[in-house]
Design a protein around this nucleic acid. Structure first.
Lengths: 221, 221
DNA sequence: GCAAAAGTGTTCTAGGTACACCCATGT
DNA sequence: ACATGGGTGTACCTAGAACACTTTTGC
């Protein structure tokens, strides 16, 4: 037992993990193993250890619950309505991250719990205020697309410009001009041709690009 | 005494209060009344009550320690390094706000503690990681000047366009073209002429403007 | 040889920047 | 009458938007 002179809240982290799959923006959810909201869908996350940095806690939960590591992680917002958790006062520091389609080896690594990728437009009922957290993350992501190189975090180590364009189109929900798009992202100067190409169907092969500094997100424009 | 099965951190809020005074961007600090950092300068703030919303806590501290109320308040970032407070683990949810020069009736309302406005470029030694918090707030403020109407929060209920221009110049640290500036801020469409003028020295009087929706910050551009 | 995606430049337009003079007042 | 800050319009320039055809492959 731990005693304090004044009541203390519990502090947790929750992580919104985005990916692009089947031309959809998806979010990773896990099925809760215990009450409250037992068997309900929720964001991965958990309590912060008493001697653990907040971001470290988020990285640890991410690793433990999904097997994902070494990703771009950004603090999103801190949610603290007094009644957001029925057990006790829990303040949650939320983070979000973007993972590439080739890291979708989730599920295996997760500790026997059911996990799933959900289209952000068709989410199931969610535990706590997690719907609100995802909504805020989507907002932030959409905004950052326009003034940073954050979208590159969705890409695998080698990718084509058409694949990258599809990412922007899916998130913004509208088609983009191919020539203007290439002009713009190449001007960022943060990717290089590998020299290789990808053959993918009965048409001209696409050049493969790679990031100069993977994991780095810069402001642009 | 309050008991928990697992150790819990304490949670506080700290508020960075900006104003413009004497052609300088200033921050409000208070002198600490107790250990640690007794008599040192620190941001206003304090512990979140167990049944209190985070933003309510920030508003309460703001009121109690400075007498300021009814202002635009925005969550900034949550700081939680395990050793940021020598007493126990304290996670702080920081907020920032902008107050107009005519609200500088601080000091009187504060509960007998010494308070002071400090030029952001000449801060004293600060308690905890408050220097870092202020630095982050300044960053956010500077960024928001360019894509929101946040600067209007510095203005008193009636103000002239020259006064507003000075605010932008002080924060960005460079002079702006008067005609382009007026074109831009009037295009925001969120202020109206009062019809009154202010006589202020031996020159043409300036027209007074007022906000259509005080306290509201919009995205622009 | 045909279907399907990859790759490539130029023109047009709008929004941002640069810039100089008259106005109303106090002394 | 002069010093001081308030108020106003236009020309230029650059960055973003619109737009169509050739290339390379698989079948």
């Amino acid at each position: 037992m731990y005693q304090y002179q004044y009541p203390h809240p519990a502090v947790s982290t929750d992580i919104v993990i985005f990916t692009i799959q089947d031309k959809q923006l998806k979010v990773l959810l896990i099925r809760r193993a215990s009450e409250p909201f037992k068997n309900g869908w929720a964001l991965p996350g958990g309590f912060v250890d008493i001697d653990e940095d907040l971001e470290q806690a988020a990285l640890r939960e991410l690793r433990e619950e999904t097997g994902i590591s070494g990703v771009y992680l950004e603090q999103l917002y801190t949610f603290g309505k007094p009644d957001r958790d029925p057990r006790e006062r829990v303040i949650t520091v939320s983070y979000y991250t973007l993972v590439s389609i080739d890291r979708l080896t989730v599920g295996a690594a997760s500790d026997a719990r059911e996990v799933g990728w959900f289209n952000i437009e068709q989410l199931p009922e969610l535990a706590f205020d997690h719907k609100q957290i995802i909504s805020k993350a989507k907002q932030r992501l959409t905004a950052k697309l326009d003034y940073s190189t954050i979208a590159l975090q969705f890409m695998p180590s080698k990718f084509t410009l058409s694949e990258l364009q599809r990412v922007y189109e899916i998130i913004h929900g509208e088609p983009l001009d191919k020539r203007n798009f290439r002009k713009r992202v190449l001007a960022y100067g943060c990717m290089v041709e590998t020299g290789e190409v990808r053959r993918n169907g009965s048409h001209r092969p696409a050049r493969l690009y790679t990031l100069k500094s993977p994991g780095q997100v810069e402001f642009v424009k």
